[in-house]
């Protein structure tokens, strides 16, 4: 990686404990930058609120997938046993819906589960191989807040990113170590 072609991605500040991180995060949210994120070794209660995150749309994906699953299961069984190849089983009507219910139930669960996972990956933009691990310690015992340099300014009412100002700001919040992060290629 040649040093003269480095592109700045943002500035990251490292903290030693979750309480300071949480308090700092509240200030970062208040400061109204366009893009920021937190990196912690384990979930911190209250972080969602501190980051000002809205409820995830994931439950709606699950609901839609569940409804699709139950409908598809009924349609498949109805079509095979009533329309395409009706077979008389024990004198029961062709459209014996109680017998369809177990498959309808299972497909509801299957579709909900699969699409919840896929939806989660999509909403979290995973897998993301483009980003290196900023520092191994954030998977172990340190907490990080990163303020990103927006690639494109989407919301002009947000506070503009100014590298030296952001560095100072993170230091003022109690970051023990503040570093610049540069973009890297794959691997």
């Amino acid at each position: 990686m040649s040093s003269n072609a480095q592109i700045l991605e943002g500035v990251v500040g490292f903290f030693d404990d979750p309480e300071t991180t949480l308090e700092a995060m509240k200030k970062v949210t208040e400061a109204n930058y366009e893009s920021y994120d937190s990196y912690t070794p384990y979930p911190i209660h209250g972080m969602d609120d501190a980051m000002g995150l809205k409820r995830s749309p994931l439950p709606w994906i699950t609901l839609a997938a569940g409804i699709a699953g139950v409908s598809l299961a009924f349609a498949l069984q109805y079509w095979t046993s009533v329309v395409d190849w009706p077979v008389n089983v024990g004198g029961k009507p062709f459209n014996s819906w109680p017998a369809f219910v177990p498959v309808m139930f299972e497909l509801t669960i299957l579709f909900s589960g699969i699409f919840t996972l896929l939806g989660l990956l999509g909403l979290c933009r995973l897998p993301n191989t483009g980003r290196k691990v900023i520092d191994p310690s954030i998977t172990r015992d340190r907490f990080a807040i990163m303020i990103d340099l927006p690639k494109k300014v989407r919301n002009s009412s947000c506070k503009p990113f100014e590298e030296s100002e952001v560095t100072q700001f993170l230091q003022s919040l109690g970051a023990k170590d503040v570093r610049k992060v540069y973009e890297e290629g794959w691997f």
Binding site: E19, L22, Y42, H45
Partner: peptide, 8 residues
């Protein structure tokens, strides 16, 4: 988790 932060 971050139990320490609450004042009991």
């Amino acid at each position: 988790m971050s139990a320490h932060s609450h004042v009991e």
